[in-house]
Nucleic acid binder design. Structure first.
Ligand SMILES: [Mn+2]
Ligand SMILES: [Mn+2]
Ligand SMILES: [Zn+2]
Ligand SMILES: [Zn+2]
Lengths: 142, 142
DNA sequence: ATTTTATTGAGAATGAATCTCAAATGCATA
DNA sequence: TATGCATTTGAGATTCATTCTCAATAAAAT
């Protein structure tokens, strides 16, 4: 069985939550898709194969996936929260093009190390980094 | 006349926008307050002195203040967009406590320099940094 | 002062996210 | 495998930050 499925199952069990069919379908869909996504994207993707998973359940499940460490919330886009699966992927930061919406991924660890140093000075315990920038990609600088 | 007022006036003129009473009241309120704020905070603050500035006008004016460079949008908090006046202030990044909501400001330039280097590699032109982290402040680590 | 044009306030509309609740399901136990 | 109970689900209603509409008003240009 895939790593992420085991991790998910263990996470749910550790919180006394049931491994239900919708929860499994949602988790699998998240790993089938390698793009950044919002809840509606995910809903549309799932609907193709499984008629009976509701938006409400996706809205309820996404925070569980975040808490389990399988996915991360990313910068919001068009006033919707966006996510990406991160389990098994290098941490990275995002450059978002304000013109075409393209998301460019870039390094992370150097930046994270620096932030860690600053956080330590403040006795702040980081649970989630929020690193990136908005601007214009190569193609949109006319 | 204060620097920021001149800058604002010039900005508005350059976009053929009128320097109206509400626009002036809103801009002044933003610089009277030295905290991070959301639109509703600002509305309540303004209402104390000026009865006739509507939420709609504040919602319309805040993006102008952002575009003029007088204020910046910061991390959102409790599903509301939050802002701070930044004109005349050092750039800085934010650590936000997930428990008590406290916002801690910290250095910036080292991090920004690093990000600049990464952005350059991608030919990405940054217009706004998004730098910070969520986690737990000194007092909330029990 | 008159004309032109942008802006305003008030309330309606939008839409992402959350909530409600009766019906369905997972899972522990016998 | 069948039973019992707590959790979860789908569907739709609700919330609430933000945006929009539009007739009335105010700023600037003439
Ligand atoms: Mn990414
Ligand atoms: Mn700040
Ligand atoms: Zn672009
Ligand atoms: Zn705290």
């Amino acid at each position: 069985m895939k790593q992420e499925k085991e991790l998910y199952r263990d996470f749910l069990r550790s919180k006394n939550l049931k491994l239900t069919k919708p929860r499994l379908i949602i988790m699998e869909a998240v790993f089938e898709n390698h793009e950044h996504f919002n809840v509606d994207d995910l809903y549309e993707q799932i609907k193709k194969k499984h008629k009976n998973v509701s938006r409400a359940t996706i809205y309820r499940t996404v925070p569980l996936l975040v808490e389990s460490g399988l996915i991360k919330q990313s910068l919001r886009c068009e006033s919707k929260d966006i996510y990406e699966h991160t389990y098994g992927h290098e941490n990275h930061l995002h450059f978002i093009c304000e013109n075409c919406g393209k998301i460019i991924e870039s390094g992370f660890s150097e930046v994270a190390n620096l932030i860690d140093t600053l956080a330590e000075k403040e006795n702040f315990k980081i649970s989630e980094y929020n690193l990136g920038a908005r601007g214009f990609c190569k193609d949109c600088q006319k």
